[in-house]
């Protein structure tokens, strides 16, 4: 296998990994605060359709990504009001948000179907990206770099800042956090809004560099993969990064296993199933290692009602 092919594979993997990495990073923060939002796929679709609309009307990619983040964040606040203020079931509300996002994006996107969306290309001078070796560093869409930066930012926030510590405390033991005076509901609102914004940006990846068009259900289930990824990563940002690229690698390997005899050591179906098998394996390993506990935040998915 030539170096050029290896580099080409790496670049394709980065593209496939970026949307699930962005969405999973947002969901990781949400889940760390003790909230399970299954609406990732719906929020991604809202982000994707807003990106298409803004890019086609204004031609401004940055504005499109910001609007996508805001719109998806706004939609996540619907989930917030229902589950946090009104203590509705988080699983049911999250699924409803996915259905809402799918429907809204289909309706809102109708005028934009059948149109070619201008690509968001590498921010570096094209000369840097023509050489195959340099392409591996400079040949990506800005959102790929943004996702990598956000991994560090989320890790730093959760592990190194006081605010991150409070957020984790709220997710691990909401009653204690409440009793020492932290606004549990307020903190969870912020986490949910951040998760929405990240899902929206993840949605932007599709029209901006993966599949530059709008059609209904453009994200085809990548939001669900992001949810599996959070579990796979055991709620840790750097493991999430490795997991996203591993999932991306498997998606691309599946295709190579079908087209290239060098990859045909195992059937393509095996590569396609591997991310999910690996997620199950990780869950098993986690529960074996720490007896009686999982890596999940203790309050994950449980509604919080302040007493007294």
């Amino acid at each position: 296998m030539s170096t050029e092919l290896i580099i080409a594979i790496i670049i394709t993997i980065a593209g496939a990994a970026t949307p699930i990495l962005l969405a999973a990073l947002g969901e990781l923060v949400v889940e760390k605060s003790g909230v399970l939002n299954l609406g990732v796929e719906g929020m991604m679709l809202i982000g994707a359709v807003i990106t298409v609309a803004v890019t086609l009307t204004t031609g401004n990619h940055l504005l499109a990504v910001v609007c996508a983040a805001l719109a998806a964040s706004l939609s996540s606040l619907i989930f917030g009001v229902l589950t946090l203020t009104l203590s509705a079931n988080q699983v049911a509300t999250g699924l409803a948000l996915t259905i809402l996002g799918t429907g809204f994006s289909a309706l809102f996107g109708q005028p934009y179907t059948g149109k070619d969306v201008p690509l968001l290309r590498s921010p570096f001078p094209p000369e840097l990206a023509t050489d195959p070796i340099w392409r591996v560093l400079f040949g990506y869409s800005p959102l790929v770099y943004f996702a990598l930066i956000m991994v560090v930012v989320v890790w730093w926030f959760l592990q190194k800042t006081r605010a991150g510590l409070i957020l984790r405390a709220v997710g691990e033991n909401d009653l204690s956090a409440h009793s020492i005076g932290y606004p549990v509901i307020g903190i969870r609102y912020l986490a949910v809004a951040f998760g929405g914004a990240m899902a929206g940006i993840a949605g932007s990846c599709f029209p901006l560099f993966l599949t530059p068009q709008w059609v209904e259900r453009l994200t085809t289930g990548r939001g669900w993969i992001a949810l599996a990824l959070v579990v796979f990563a055991a709620w840790r940002p750097f493991r999430l990064l490795a997991g996203a690229y591993f999932f991306g690698l498997m998606m691309i390997f599946e295709i190579y296993a079908k087209t290239n005899s060098a990859f045909r050591v195992l059937p393509s179906e095996f590569w396609a199933a591997l991310p999910y098998l690996a997620t199950v394996l990780v869950l098993v390993l986690i529960s074996l290692r720490r007896e009686g506990s999982t890596a999940a935040p203790a309050c994950l998915g449980k509604p919080f009602v302040a007493t007294g």
């Binding site: 496939a16 599949t211 059609v215 085809t220 998606m251 691309i252 295709i255 079908k258 087209t259």
Partner: peptide
Amino acid sequence: VKVVYVDSWFDPAKEADAARALIDQ
């Protein structure tokens, strides 16, 4: 003629990834 089945009638991201992988080869 190299053939790739994407196991779907509609999965734009996978179709695009398949196209990239084929062009790279």
